[in-house]
Computed example of a mutant assay.
Amino acid sequence: MLVLLGTPGVVARAGVAQAGQPASPDPALNQSIAPDQPVAAGQVELSAGHIDIGPRFDDGQWTLLIHDDSAEPVWRDPDRTVLRVTEAAVQTVPDDPAYEFIGVSAGTPVYVVPQVQQTDVVWVGWNTQDPQVMQTIDRGVTLELAGVAGPGTVTMYLQAGTFSAPQVLWRSAEPPGQPMWVEVNTHTHANWVFTEPGVYLVAVRATADLISGEQVSAVRHLRFAIGDTVTTDTALAAQPPVVEPTSSAATTDDDAGSAGGQSPWLVAGLALTATGLAVALIVVVLRGRSARRRAEQERSTGAAT
């Protein structure tokens, strides 16, 4: 079966990871990140251990990096890092309607990066715990699934216990976007489900408002090698598709509307209103001219008699 055990106390409501919750029973989720942790330069494959994606300022530039805590903690460049999901991660989809969102039939084998750590499977989560990030952002970060290239589909969901309903966060079968609001100083893990072996490039957009009033955003691709037959070189050589620059970013349970600018529906409504006013003005002008012509004709007729 899929690993259904969750991390009670980490998730406050569906799709929203928040800080300030009760301490998790999993001590691996209770962490802090030193401000001087370096960014490793070399290429690497990670097939086990604790991994987080998270925003960071690298040489003063906002970006999204991989925090590798599988050995000595370091940050890594996603373009030079392969996340290997081995055959040890294979599970079968439960015969339960609650898991129809995965998009494949019950009993189908899939690759699962679990929400709860297994020693022989890479453990991928996210955090907003870099010290400079915590000092600089206003409240939190929006993480979006900006696109997926791969042989199958990718689904990410949370489950707070065996008997709780799954809380779907990202599905590659749906249009890009799917914003997820993450409070500052948060560390969370979820279930990732891959339906086919092969190379997946998962584009993640991280957007935040800074306390200075500036908005920052960056898109990076996570490189997953699913299954034992995919080579690391193949995963590193894969070219990611172009990601659309537009973003729904920033629409959260706490913010009604997009932080990226005016809603397209609002713009369309304003345009229609302006058009209507222009037409009305033209009608008024034409009617005024017609009335003046009639008055002039009546005056001419009266003078002639």
Rank of each mutant, 00 (worst) to 15 (best):
M1F: 03
L2P: 01
L2T: 07
V3G: 12
V3L: 13
L4I: 09
L5N: 14
T7F: 03
G9C: 02
V11R: 12
Q18R: 15
Q18C: 13
Q21H: 15
S24C: 14
P25T: 09
P25H: 12
D26G: 06
D26P: 07
P27H: 11
L29E: 05
S32D: 10
A34N: 10
Q37P: 07
Q37A: 13
V39S: 12
A41I: 03
G42H: 03
Q43F: 06
E45P: 05
H50T: 10
G54L: 04
G54K: 07
D59T: 02
D59A: 14
G60I: 06
W62V: 04
D68N: 15
D68T: 10
S70D: 02
E72K: 15
L83D: 09
R84M: 09
V85F: 04
E87L: 10
E87K: 15
Q91S: 12
T92L: 13
P94V: 04
D95V: 02
P97W: 11
A98V: 07
S105Y: 00
A106P: 14
V110M: 15
V110R: 13
V113D: 08
Q115S: 13
V116P: 00
D120P: 09
V122H: 01
W126T: 03
Q129A: 11
Q135D: 12
Q135P: 00
Q135Y: 03
T136E: 05
T136A: 10
T136Y: 03
R139E: 14
V141L: 12
V141F: 05
T142C: 08
T142D: 11
T142F: 06
E144T: 04
A146I: 07
A146Y: 02
G150E: 04
A160H: 01
T162H: 13
P166L: 13
Q167Y: 01
W170Q: 00
R171M: 11
R171F: 02
S172G: 06
A173C: 04
Q178Y: 11
Q178T: 01
P179N: 01
P179T: 01
M180A: 13
W181P: 01
E183G: 15
V184R: 15
N185T: 00
T186I: 04
A190H: 12
V199M: 04
L201A: 06
A203Y: 04
R205H: 08
R205T: 08
T207Q: 09
T207W: 07
D209A: 14
L210F: 06
S212H: 02
G213V: 06
G213E: 05
Q215H: 11
V216Y: 00
S217R: 03
A218H: 14
H221R: 05
A225G: 07
I226F: 08
D233E: 15
A235H: 02
A237G: 02
A238T: 13
V243N: 05
V243A: 10
V243M: 08
A250P: 00
A250M: 11
D253E: 13
D255S: 06
D255G: 05
S258M: 04
S258H: 05
A259D: 04
A259H: 11
S263F: 00
L266Y: 06
A268C: 00
G269L: 10
L270I: 01
A271Q: 09
A271M: 09
T275P: 01
V279K: 02
L281M: 03
V283H: 06
V284E: 11
V285L: 09
V285Y: 00
R287K: 05
G288A: 14
R289T: 01
R289M: 08
R289K: 14
R294V: 06
S300V: 02
S300T: 02
T305F: 13
